[in-house]
């Protein structure tokens, strides 16, 4: 039987993908080559239109120019500095956002009173686009680190809260019966049944959260920042350094992919029980 949790978790899809791959009888390398073909073709097209002058280099620099700008930023240590600043903000925001989200989900998930008191407020806040809160955040918290990290934390909190809350509330009634017949007390029930059962939902939320952390950060760093990838790009815009802007975009893409992969790896380790077949 497929529970709602299982259906929600992206990891589950991989299993089917693997099966399908085997059925087609194609080797892994052939499939990787196929998947890489699209991006490679795109890169080639970019090169052709920019190198032939079809599109002006002031609008679209060649891949080589972007590569050189990137190498330059790495060489003078600027990229590392800004990357570290961004990663610190994202990490701190993620840390606090996850803690607050999980705590709220536990309160609303385990207590009906808590749910009635807190959940409507959060559902209402959720309807607001997080970035629209920026002017208010600046007035309240200033333009420093606190504002940026708080916005990230707030953005991160919602997916964590919503998914973990839903997972706790959607706990399998069969396991609750089992816990009752095994004589588990409330604490044991939470420890042995509720929390492990809600972990898949938590990880779904975490993957959304990581993506949102970067998204909020990009915007927050473009306002009144003196460090970070967002700042690097804003500064480049002022100097019309399109190649640097593009380096920034690439860095964001890599960061997004890498952090998502990291969460998946952790998820696979923690939820190893569900992937064994």
């Amino acid at each position: 039987m497929v529970t709602i949790d299982e259906a929600l978790v992206p990891g589950t899809d991989d299993r089917f993908a693997r099966k399908r791959r085997k059925r087609n009888g194609k080797s892994a390398t052939a499939l990787i080559a196929q998947r890489a073909a699209g991006p490679v073709a795109l890169l080639l097209a970019w090169w052709i239109v920019s190198a032939t002058g079809l599109i002006s280099e002031r609008i679209l620099p060649t891949p080589v120019a972007v590569f050189e700008a990137g190498a330059n930023l790495i060489g003078n240590g600027e990229l590392a500095t800004h990357l570290l600043a961004s990663a610190q903000r994202a990490g701190t925001g993620l840390f606090f956002g996850v803690i607050v989200g999980v705590l709220l989900a536990l309160v609303t998930g385990l207590s009906r009173v808590g749910e009635r008191l807190i959940d409507p407020n959060l559902q209402m806040l959720r309807a607001m686009p997080i970035l629209a809160l920026m002017p208010l955040a600046i007035v309240w918290l200033g333009i420093g680190e606190t504002m940026k990290v708080s916005l990230v934390a707030l953005g991160v909190m919602f997916p964590i809260y919503l998914n973990t809350h839903a997972a706790i509330r959607g706990a399998d009634a069969r396991f609750l019966d089992l816990a009752a017949t095994a004589g588990l007390n409330k604490l044991q029930l939470i420890r042995h049944v509720t929390i492990p059962g809600a972990l898949p939902g938590f990880f779904t939320g975490l993957r959304f959260s990581v993506a949102i952390a970067w998204l909020v950060l990009v915007v927050a760093e473009q306002t009144n920042a003196t460090s970070g990838i967002g700042y690097l790009m804003t500064r480049a815009r002022g100097l019309s350094q399109i190649d640097v802007i593009m380096v920034g975009l690439l860095v964001y893409a890599v960061l997004g992919l890498a952090s998502d992969a990291l969460v998946r790896i952790i998820e696979r380790k923690v939820l190893s029980w569900r992937l064994t077949r």
């Binding site: 069969r174 017949t181 049944v193 492990p196 569900r274």
Partner: peptide, 21 residues
Amino acid sequence: VAFQDSRLLPWKKVLANVMLG
């Protein structure tokens, strides 16, 4: 109680399931 489905907690190994409660 032994249920129709074995109702083992999937996130606990077999021994831990037997020790439950």
